[in-house]
């Protein structure tokens, strides 16, 4: 089976600015694929390239194995859920959802029936006669989703669709989206700047920075084995230790990353031969609920952050000297590009 989407050395220039810089990637059929990155990293431009709102300055884009580089948006078997939902204000909800079927010439009776069905899929069965302006943000989001899915596209593109929702609703929509994707088996391409969203929902994540891809990996690998300092910093929180300090701690002059929850206070229960140990002074302690965040300053001003369970165990005093320890296999060496 061909890949759902393939980028073959794709660049998109806006004037002198390389919004997308020589990106190659493949998205598998039926995959939940996220594009993660800070704003201006090129992730949204990549999405718009798939939709056909932008055309590549160089390189090729294949959809289902066919070269789609020069196709208009309406010639692509791809639908988009827009960041602002882009519901048509002059139509009611049902006709919004049925719009894609209407312009493709599906008869009135059938398209309204299918639109009803799509609305009930997003739990808005009774809202067909409302105008978009009468809906809440979460409801508009669902209508946009139903509208994009009613034609059963090969690929569904989602442009930060949860950004405007409050936290509770966002979490609920995250799991609903994931369930929907599993049920329909449609390839989802999800753009977000929220790393926890990308980690919790995706099969694979592409991390973007400055128009380039830093890493493509499963959420687990992205977290455990960040390919660069940028990824280690952007995905979760991480301690990135510079080469000089790494040499004094481990004997190897290489950058490494260590996740805060892998660092423990004291060296109880750790086999010294398989561990790295460091001494430092506690600078700050914050209670976060399930865990405490402890900031420890090592020699040479480097600060390591450790997360320790908040139940049991006395906390050290701020200003006191503590010993930190972590297992060697919890560390991840980073090879920095020149």
């Amino acid at each position: 089976m061909p890949h759902a989407v393939t980028f073959d050395h794709v660049s998109r220039l806006f004037g002198q600015m390389r919004a997308v810089d020589n990106v190659s990637l493949t998205i598998n059929e039926g995959e939940f694929f996220s594009m993660l990155g800070p704003s201006g990293s090129g992730k949204t431009t990549c999405l718009r390239l798939i939709a056909g709102f932008e055309l590549p300055s160089s390189g090729r884009i294949l959809i289902a194995g066919q070269d789609a580089s020069a196709l208009a948006p309406f010639e692509r078997d791809v639908n988009t859920v827009f960041q602002d939902y882009a519901l048509f204000p002059t139509m009611d909800v049902l006709n919004n959802v049925a719009y894609g079927l209407m312009v493709k010439g599906v008869g009135k009776k059938e398209r309204l029936a299918r639109a009803e069905e799509a609305l009930s899929m997003v739990a808005l069965a009774d809202y067909g006669s409302r105008k978009p302006g009468e809906l809440s943000g979460g409801q508009r989001q669902r209508v946009a989703l139903a509208r994009a899915l009613v034609g059963r596209p090969r690929v569904l593109l989602l442009d930060e669709p949860l950004g405007a929702l409050d936290l509770k609703l966002r979490e609920q929509m995250q799991s609903e989206l994931k369930n929907l994707q599993r049920k329909l088996g449609i390839t989802f391409v999800f753009v977000t700047h929220d790393q926890s969203e990308a980690l919790s929902m995706s099969d694979r994540v592409a991390v973007f920075a400055k128009g380039r891809i830093e890493q493509i990996a499963t959420p687990q690998d992205l977290y455990d084995k960040p390919a660069s300092r940028f990824v280690a910093d952007f995905v979760g929180t991480s301690n990135v230790v510079d080469a000089p300090l790494a040499q004094s701690l481990t004997g190897q002059r290489r950058i490494f990353a260590i996740r805060p929850e892998r660092i423990q206070l004291g060296c109880a229960g750790i086999v010294t031969a398989h561990a790295v140990r460091a001494k430092g002074v506690v600078r700050d302690i914050a209670f976060l609920g399930a865990v405490n965040r402890i900031e420890v300053e090592l020699a040479g001003k480097a600060v390591l952050t450790a997360l320790t369970p908040s139940f049991g165990g006395a906390l050290p005093l701020i200003g006191s000297e503590v010993e930190l320890a972590w297992r060697i296999d919890a560390m991840h060496w980073i090879t920095e590009a020149a």
């Binding site: 948006p73 639908n79 882009a86 048509f88 894609g100 034609g151």
Partner: peptide, 20 residues
């Protein structure tokens, strides 16, 4: 985005002009 959404849903330029 309204015009883009229309095109995205399969409407060509004329249909987009007429309906949106």
């Amino acid at each position: 985005s309204h015009i883009e959404a229309s095109m995205d849903l399969g409407a060509d330029s004329w249909q987009t002009f007429r309906h949106i």
